[in-house]
């Protein structure tokens, strides 16, 4: 089964790449396994320069869009399967797995839509990765997983999938407000030798081709996302890092305060869209 998927992906990459300059099917509707996914909606009120928010899916070409419409064709699901294995794997000094405490991953239905969020006991803004590592170190006596690596991304994707189709609604006021403000500032700050901000590409120019890439709004409602380019899941912070390097800027630390703040702010720009984890992009 997995072998067949791999052949399909390889074929897609050979033929698909030739098409990557073709225009996207911007009016298509996303339905996954019979479930409608909202990919366009009115922008949240805190956004000043955009009226309608759109999932990155709406900017992709038909062939890429199709991969996300069917879980059998979605290569991200291979990693979700790995996430399930990891979910059930007993590890650490306490001989426990995630399943020992949580049973099924469906216990976390809805969680993805409110992440990142304030964690009162830690007194910090938490991403999904923090929940995973906190359970590993505190409940399992296991080593934390590295952010941005396959095991972590797979388990984050498994948890995210439980919320697919539900509405993104991260909280931006209260304790997290200073972080949200910082994230907003970072989004609009020009960095690197190319001297660009996230907004220069993802707010001022979405819908426009930049060389071979069709610029989207840089939404994160579908993360971790499977990218055809590197044939694996990509975490939110890894994507931020990639965009910063492209503009020749020194990225902030993966899992550090700046990227956490940016994650909160970017997530809030997608409030109202459906969670689509695991999405497929090029």
């Amino acid at each position: 089964m997995i072998f067949a998927k791999k052949i399909f992906i390889t074929l897609f990459m050979i033929f698909g790449l030739n098409l990557s300059n073709a225009s996207a099917d911007e009016s298509a509707e996303l339905v996954v396994e019979g479930q409608p996914i909202l990919t366009r909606t009115k922008a949240p009120s805190h956004m000043e320069n955009i009226d309608e928010v759109r999932s990155g899916w709406t900017f992709r070409i038909k062939e890429t869009q199709a991969l996300q419409m069917d879980d059998f064709e979605n290569p991200g699901m291979i990693f979700v399967d790995k996430g399930i294995d990891l979910w059930n794997k007993v590890e650490g000094s306490k001989n426990k797995s995630c399943a020992s405490c949580h049973g099924d991953a469906s216990e976390f239905k809805g969680l993805r839509t409110v992440m990142p969020k304030w964690n009162a006991s830690a007194g910090a803004l938490w991403s999904m990765e923090d929940h995973v590592n906190n359970c590993r170190t505190e409940q399992m006596g296991a080593e934390p997983l590295k952010w941005g690596k396959a095991p972590m991304d797979s388990i984050v994707a498994l948890i995210g999938l439980q919320s697919r189709g539900m509405t993104m609604s991260v909280k931006i006021d209260g304790e997290v407000q200073p972080m949200w403000e910082l994230g907003k500032e970072l989004f609009y700050t020009r960095v690197g030798q190319l001297d660009m901000s996230c907004a220069n590409c993802h707010e001022d120019n979405y819908g426009v081709m930049i060389r071979a890439d069709h610029l989207s709004q840089g939404q994160i409602n579908g993360f971790p996302t499977y990218r055809l380019k590197n044939a694996k899941l990509n975490s939110i912070h890894a994507r931020f890092k990639g965009c910063m390097k492209n503009i020749r800027a020194t990225p902030y630390k993966v899992g550090g305060d700046e990227f956490r703040a940016l994650e909160l702010y970017v997530a809030s720009r997608g409030n109202g869209l459906s969670a689509e984890t695991p999405s497929v992009r090029n």
Partner: peptide, 11 residues
């Protein structure tokens, strides 16, 4: 510039 990658600093 702001936060230029090391290999491009001063270039």
């Amino acid at each position: 510039y702001n936060r230029t990658l090391k290999k491009f600093v001063g270039k």
